[in-house]
């Protein structure tokens, strides 16, 4: 008989108590698209699984009091993708989440799962970072709001305490001429883990000059990284050839990848530069209302 326990609490308090009181390893289950693979492979041997999907608000998309979107932590990718308003405001974030796995995986995978699995190659995470998303974290000590880039601390590791989990993500209110984009490079057209991923979020003035930018890179470091040097290159400029060349160089310089089965150091650095240019072009176009089509 199995020693693995399961609980599906219906309140935050109940969930926090279960996590705090667990004797061994307790894992939070959202969509399970990473967790179940790790369980089956024997890489993880938890004693308790806490399924958070029955907690009110953890699935769904709403507008917060500041006018920004609030996305329930366990909302499946397919539900996020189906939200037209969110798509219009944050197309980069939506397509980043949409790039995770297959249609089947989209039926389950969530932003919280992708973030807390803490893979440097997670697709939605560079887009979340670029968006400046805030994670609403709940635990025994109450509720705290944390910039998403403070959650992952290393491959498979997060800053969350044992009794904490993410309830929802808050996106900042969207001003005019603002847009985001995300691209990842993979060897096939689908179903791969990113060799490199890049998310960029920009605001432009009426002349198309960038006034604010956030640039994030995935799969080039132990965690997804923010690249402020790259963002600074964009601010004060349009996307002219010189800016693009500098952006490419900044992304390459910031990338500190490893060589593994998915790519080499040399290749990943080059691709980081290529993607930064391509993503910036999409984000700028979108911010100027030129296109809102799918990037992939």
């Amino acid at each position: 008989m199995s020693s693995l326990n399961y609980a599906a609490p219906t309140t935050v308090d109940e969930a926090v108590k279960l996590l705090a009181g667990a004797s061994g390893l307790a894992k939070v289950l959202s969509g399970g698209t990473d967790l179940l693979v790790q369980l089956r492979a024997g890489r993880l041997k938890p004693d308790l699984i806490v399924d958070t999907k029955k907690i009110p608000g953890i699935i769904g998309i709403r507008k917060g009091s500041d006018g920004g979107f609030v996305i329930g932590a366990a909302t499946p990718g397919a539900e996020v993708e189906a939200n037209a308003e969110l798509n219009a405001a944050w197309p980069g974030l939506v397509e980043a989440l949409d790039l995770i796995g297959s249609t089947q995986v989209q039926g389950r995978c969530s932003l919280a799962g992708n973030l807390c699995n803490a893979s440097p190659a997670a697709d939605s995470v560079p887009a979340l970072y670029a968006a400046g998303a805030i994670a609403v974290v709940v635990g025994s000590k109450g509720r705290r709001e944390v910039p998403v880039e403070q959650i992952p601390t290393g491959p498979g590791r997060t800053s969350l305490a044992k009794d904490e989990f993410i309830l929802e993500f808050k996106l900042p209110p969207r001003g005019p001429r603002s847009a985001d984009a995300y691209l990842r490079f993979i060897p096939r057209t689908e179903m791969d883990i990113a060799v490199v991923g890049c998310g960029i979020n920009v605001t432009l003035d009426e002349k198309g000059v960038c006034t604010a930018a956030r640039v994030a890179l995935g799969a080039v470091s132990p965690t997804v990284i923010m690249v402020p040097e790259a963002a600074q290159i964009l601010v004060g400029h349009t996307l002219d050839a010189d800016t693009l060349a500098k952006l490419d160089a900044a992304a390459q310089a910031a990338a500190k990848p490893i060589t593994d089965k998915r790519g080499t150091v040399e290749y990943r650095k080059k691709i980081a530069g290529v993607l930064a240019r391509r993503v910036a072009a999409i984000a700028f176009d979108r911010a100027q209302g030129k296109t809102n089509g799918k990037a992939h």
């Binding site: 060897p187 096939r188 057209t189 689908e190 179903m191 791969d192 883990i193 089965k261 998915r262």
Partner: peptide
């Protein structure tokens, strides 16, 4: 595994 042993998928 099929994640990193990359056989063609329908969109390839």
């Amino acid at each position: 595994g099929f994640l990193d042993y990359r056989v063609p998928v329908a969109s390839d």
